[in-house]
């Protein structure tokens, strides 16, 4: 367009008036052109920012592309082979799976217990105050949460070690010790994300029809049976959805890890994203990084397959 020169300029006037006419027509008579005008910004944005990158990631993953290296060659599956042969990458997959499983498990259990607890509070005021208090960790920026915990867990001046030494227990360099770094990350993640589970389950609890409980009471059902035959069945969908959402979200864990351990000590906390960041993005080895990103994408899509299928079914277009 630019190199066509000034000849285009006179043409532009005609184009412009045509454009104005088109604009005038948009939304005035033709709902089709209105619809197109409404989705086109999103469409263009998504093509540039997601479709094109997705295709490029696949393309780069078969090359030895490095940002500062002049030539790039196709190397077939070499990136994938070297990733899967790499002990640390295999370990990163394992760390991610273990982290996700543990975090989601504890978040679900604690979230459910908290929801049952808060829901059982008789006083409405206390119940509402508890609800918003419980949500605070989830609302705080992850970076801020990570830093607050790193202050508490500081080896020399941290309050946690101070408590431990006061009652005569051994102290730890929490994030430098292979034995404690990983569990501590799980604890922090559970602390921050349990409120999400709590909120969803609590909302589901509130929507259970009260007459079901009344009927159970009339039948003389005990607390345990009421929970088992009324509460739990009513929560089933929410629990499943919640676990699924938390799994998808936890699987990408990066921010806390990168801030608190950077993947160490001895790669014991390197998750997949952290691995790609350390060994693909930082050294600008974008071919290798892309292969890692592609593996990550496939894993997430497998995890989310059920969710995607159900979501599209309930939200058809």
């Amino acid at each position: 367009m630019l190199d066509k020169g000034s000849a285009v300029n006179t043409e532009n006037y005609r184009d412009q008036s045509a454009f104005i006419r088109l604009l005038g027509r948009l939304g005035m008579r033709n709902s089709r052109s209105f619809a197109i005008a409404m989705v086109i910004p999103t469409l263009i944005f998504m093509v540039i920012m997601t479709v094109y990158p997705m295709i490029s990631t696949v393309f780069y993953s078969f090359t030895d592309f490095k940002l500062l290296k002049p030539d790039t060659d196709f190397i077939g599956l070499e990136n994938f082979i070297s990733l899967f042969q790499n002990e640390y990458f295999r370990k990163a997959i394992w760390v991610t799976v273990k982290f996700t499983a543990l975090s989601v498990f504890f978040e679900m259990i604690i979230g459910l217990l908290l929801a049952l607890y808060v829901n059982s509070i008789q006083n409405r005021m206390i119940q509402k105050t508890m609800r918003i208090t419980m949500l605070l960790p989830y609302l705080f920026p992850t970076v801020t949460v990570a830093l607050s915990w790193s202050m508490m867990l500081s080896p020399n001046y941290g309050v946690v070690n101070q408590w431990l030494s006061t009652i005569g227990l051994p102290t730890f360099s929490w994030f430098a010790d292979v034995a404690t770094a990983f569990p501590m990350l799980v604890v922090i993640d559970v602390w921050q994300n349990t409120p999400f589970v709590f909120l969803l389950i609590y909302a589901a609890l509130q929507s259970i029809p009260q007459d079901q409980y009344k009927a159970a009471m009339i039948d003389g059902a005990g607390t345990r049976n009421t929970f088992r035959y009324i509460t739990l069945p009513n929560l089933k969908t929410s629990l499943a959805l919640c676990a699924l959402l938390r799994t998808i979200d936890t699987f990408r864990i990066f921010d806390k890890v990168n801030l608190l351990t950077g993947g160490g000590p001895a790669n014991s906390t390197t998750t997949i994203t952290q691995y790609i960041y350390n060994f693909g993005i930082k050294p600008l080895k974008f071919g290798l990084g892309s292969a890692g990103a592609l593996i990550m994408t496939v894993l997430v899509l497998i995890l989310a397959a059920i969710y995607i299928k159900n979501a599209l079914k309930s939200n058809p277009n």
Binding site: P53, T273, G280, G289, S290
Partner: peptide, 27 residues
């Protein structure tokens, strides 16, 4: 509004919502 791109756009939006940032970062 009957536009052919609605269905693929809807599906793609959902997939993007689920994929981690790392899927798009390098390109």
């Amino acid at each position: 509004f009957r536009v052919a791109i609605k269905k693929p756009l809807n599906t793609w939006i959902l997939i993007v919502r689920i994929l981690p940032p790392i899927a798009f970062t390098i390109p």
